[in-house]
């Protein structure tokens, strides 16, 4: 694993990486009931971490708290020793329809975070070109989001989230509103981008197979008050392909995770 880590770093690595996320003593009450109580979490940088857990255990709330969208009651959040204000995050929402700006063309959506960060027109164009190349985009980005298919819209969302080369990319069930074909295509593109850039990825998933397929670490959460049931490691080499799905190690990890989930969710 250590070797892989170094390999990623020496490769083309424009993303500012190396910031592990650590959460300690996190407490959050929702409607007077504890959602998280004295919760600790460590997310390794330059890895894909997938979060899987029962409904209502607060997976989205966890990402929102780490990203500073939802206040915490108490506890510490740190990004490799840095506070949230010094860290740039990309965030992909489940509902791309509500997350993209429909008054802007797809390409302007991708450029928006660069514009808001004060990049010059030339630099914005160059970065978008780079992303288009990286994602091998085959559709017309000068169209408006509502003119694109669901998969294309979510791809635009991911490109927008990655535009500023964030330290961390958060994805909240990014495939749950997509058809199977689009899901397969986008998750493989996501994996390619990860292999190429080594950006830390944290993804909430509602599909265990997809979680194990993409993840280096699978975080299995319990019911409320939420704890980490287990942190499962899956070391298969990348790029993982459809063959990975029938790999005995994959099958074993998935079965084990399912067993843990069944035990903790019931």
């Amino acid at each position: 694993m250590k070797v892989n880590y170094l390999e990623h770093q020496t490769k083309v690595n424009p993303h500012q990486t190396g910031l592990d996320i650590s959460v300690s003593g996190l407490t959050k009450y929702l409607d007077g009931k504890p959602l998280y109580e004295d919760f600790d979490l460590h997310i390794s940088s330059q890895k894909i971490t997938c979060i899987f857990g029962p409904n209502g255990c607060g997976k989205s709330t966890l990402l929102n708290m780490i990203s500073g969208l939802v206040p915490i009651d108490s506890g510490q959040l740190s990004f490799g020793g840095k506070p949230r204000s010094e860290v740039s995050l990309g965030y992909v929402f489940q509902n791309y329809r509500d997350a993209l700006f429909p008054w802007l063309r797809a390409i302007q959506n991708i450029e928006y975070p660069l514009l808001s960060a004060g990049f010059s027109r030339l630099k914005r164009r160059a970065r978008v070109e780079e992303l288009i190349h990286q994602f091998n985009v085959g559709f017309d980005l000068s169209r408006y989001p509502y003119e694109l298919s669901g998969g294309q819209q979510q791809l635009v969302s991911i490109m927008r989230a990655l535009a500023t080369r964030p330290h961390v990319l958060f994805l909240d069930e990014p495939f749950s509103a997509l058809d199977y074909e689009a899901t397969l295509a986008i998750r493989d593109k996501l994996q390619d981008v990860f292999v190429e850039t080594g950006v830390t990825i944290v993804m909430i998933s509602h599909d265990l197979e997809e979680a194990v397929y993409l993840a280096d670490h699978i975080l299995l959460l319990t019911k409320r008050p939420t704890r980490i049931a287990e942190r499962v490691v899956f070391n298969a080499s990348r790029p993982r392909t459809l063959e990975t799905l029938s790999d005995p190690e994959f099958v074993r990890i998935k079965a084990h995770s399912l067993e843990v989930f069944r035990r903790e969710a019931s």
């Binding site: 929102n64 990203s67 500073g68 969208l69 740039s88 995050l89 990309g90 965030y91 929402f93 997350a99 928006y112 975070p113 808001s116 960060a117 500023t164």
Partner: peptide
């Protein structure tokens, strides 16, 4: 939220 998270 999307805009705020981009640091806008």
């Amino acid at each position: 939220m999307a805009a705020r998270i981009m640091g806008t």
